[in-house]
Amino acid sequence: MTSIALFRKDLASELRTRYAINSLLMFIIVTISVILFSIGNEKISDYLSGGLFWVVVFFTAMSGLARAFVSEEERGTSLLLQLIASPATVFSGKLIFNLVLVFSMNVVIANLYTALFDAFVIKNLLLFSTAFLFGSIGIAISSTVIAAIIAKAGSKGTLYPVLSFPILLPLILILIELTKMSMDGTAFEEGYIEVAVLICYDVIMISASYLLFDFIWKD
């Protein structure tokens, strides 16, 4: 079984119920409207709106991405997966699924956010899209491996953000920094170090995840 086949299987079962897609979409709308209500008629600063963007992204990711592994444990299909696929294949399949999910989720958030927040104006679009791309990849990698741990720990829902936050914290801090820069219209060359750190994070997390996933997956 290849990882693409596993991804297709996840996609098919997702499209059948549309559980994750619907709940993620509703979660995005709820979070953004809570922020809009709490702001009211106040004028918020540009930097604050940039930071709140990643808050929405983080909590939306935390609400939906654990599904990838938790659903296998809930349906009792994880043993079957262990039989027919190697751990690396399973991880790649789940990672592709979560990558697609995170990426489409972030695109929706970014569009809604730009439409609803006047303060959220990106001057350097290239820098922001680079940060957006590598940030989404990083969030997908870290949350996939933590989701695997959570699924084996008995699917404790509250534990997921608790475990993910310290791992995602360096990523979120750099992303907030890069968003500030792209709002100021900083040249791409000046934000080069931050982008490099972002790519480093992605590479380090993906290699650590692949190395360690065997131990999580095999009982």
Partner: peptide, 19 residues
Amino acid sequence: KRATLASVYSIIAFVTVPF
């Protein structure tokens, strides 16, 4: 299981410490 999961988590957390 507890030992394995905690070990994996502490290694994953450790690779973020240099950041």
